Amino acid sequence: MCYSAQIQADYRRNVKMFGAQMDIREFARLFWERAEGSKAKIPKAMEDAFREPQTDDERQIRTFIERYNVEQATRVE
């Protein structure tokens, strides 16, 4: 099993499970920094948590993820 599959980094699930509001803006900052060229390694499972965004913050994170993925595909090609 890959590392991403082992990490269950679903933001909504963690909020529900622990009853705490995690700072979604920290997620946004992390994904923004990576989209801007940071070498941050983010597990795919964490990206998958924002596959179906429901809030404006989550939609912004999804945009950063898509931007990063397009840039990586271009770089590899």
Rank of each mutant, 00 (worst) to 15 (best):
Y68N: 12
A35C: 05
M17R: 07
K44I: 15
G37A: 03
R67A: 07
L30Q: 08
R12N: 07
C2L: 14
I24D: 04
E26G: 03
Y11Q: 00
I7T: 13
S38W: 01
K44G: 14
R59L: 11
R29T: 15
E77L: 11
I7A: 15
D48A: 10
I61N: 13
R75C: 03
E77K: 10
I24Q: 05
R29S: 10
T55K: 04
V70I: 13
I42V: 10
Q54R: 02
A40L: 14
K41V: 15
R67L: 11
A49L: 04
G19C: 08
V76K: 10
E58Y: 09
S4G: 12
E33N: 12
R13T: 08
E33H: 05
Y3M: 15
R59T: 02
A28W: 01
N14V: 03
T55P: 08
R62C: 05
M1V: 14
E33F: 09
M46T: 04
K44D: 14
A49Y: 00
R59G: 07
E71N: 11
D56L: 04
R25T: 14
F64K: 00
E58K: 04
C2M: 12
E36T: 06
W32C: 04
F27W: 00
A9P: 02
I7M: 13
A9K: 00
F18I: 02
T74S: 03
T55E: 09
A40S: 09
F18W: 11
R75N: 12
P53V: 05
A35I: 07
T74P: 02
Q54M: 05
Y68Q: 09
V70Q: 09
M46P: 03
R29A: 13
L30I: 15
R12Q: 01
M17L: 10
I65S: 01
R13L: 09
N69W: 05
E47N: 06
A40W: 01
Q8A: 04
R75A: 14
M17F: 06
